[in-house]
């Protein structure tokens, strides 16, 4: 077991093996977990909004799915990760409240997940598993020893993906 490194909201971190990267209480935000199978270098991002090009103030790259993915890969490559060995897992993107009218506010979780998939696909990074959607929060832990992503919830159990 390595160090436990916390990733906050609108935040991203990369680390050498051994490490556990964790982010607590993901709601409509999306957690993007990257793992290089060869070097065991890991990265985790907790992004809030799908698209940086639609927002004026974009000083924090980790806030947006598109720029978070790019920056996280850069951070991992700096540590020596091998680009074509990186795989991805996704969690989060829940709809926490069920409003009858499907306002934009309510679909943000789904849009975050869709944006993450599109971005990873454009970079040829395979998504090997996901635990997304639903109406509940998730805490996730990414283990550098095997790339396993642990997903914990209140009332919806614990699973490994």
């Amino acid at each position: 077991m390595g160090d436990i490194i916390k990733v906050g909201m609108a935040d991203l971190k990369a680390s050498y093996h051994p490490a556990i990267l964790t982010t607590l209480g993901l709601g409509s935000c999306v957690g993007i977990a990257l793992f290089d199978r060869s070097t065991k270098i890991v990265g985790l991002a907790h992004a809030m909004l799908p698209d940086s090009s639609q927002i004026k103030n974009r000083t924090n790259a980790a806030k947006f799915v598109d720029t978070a993915v790019e920056n996280l890969i850069d951070e991992m490559l700096k540590l020596g990760a091998i680009r074509n060995k990186i795989v991805a897992k996704l969690a989060g993107g829940a709809q926490m409240f069920t409003f009858t009218q499907g306002t934009e506010l309510m679909r943000i979780g789904y849009r975050n997940v869709t944006a993450a998939k599109a971005k990873l696909e454009s970079l040829n990074i395979p998504i090997i598993s996901e635990d997304t959607g639903g109406n509940y929060g998730r805490t996730i832990e990414l283990d550098s020893s095997n790339g396993m992503l642990l997903v914990k919830t209140i009332g919806y159990g614990i699973k490994q993906i």
């Binding site: 609108a10 209480g25 993901l26 709601g27 809030m48 409240f97």
Partner: peptide, 24 residues
């Protein structure tokens, strides 16, 4: 009102995302 019971971080993500459009 709509009600949800869950982890604080997950609940707060809803208003936080809206604030995220404005600033940090």
């Amino acid at each position: 009102p709509e009600l949800a019971i869950d982890m604080a971080g997950a609940i707060i993500s809803v208003p936080a995302i809206e604030f995220g459009k404005l600033g940090d």
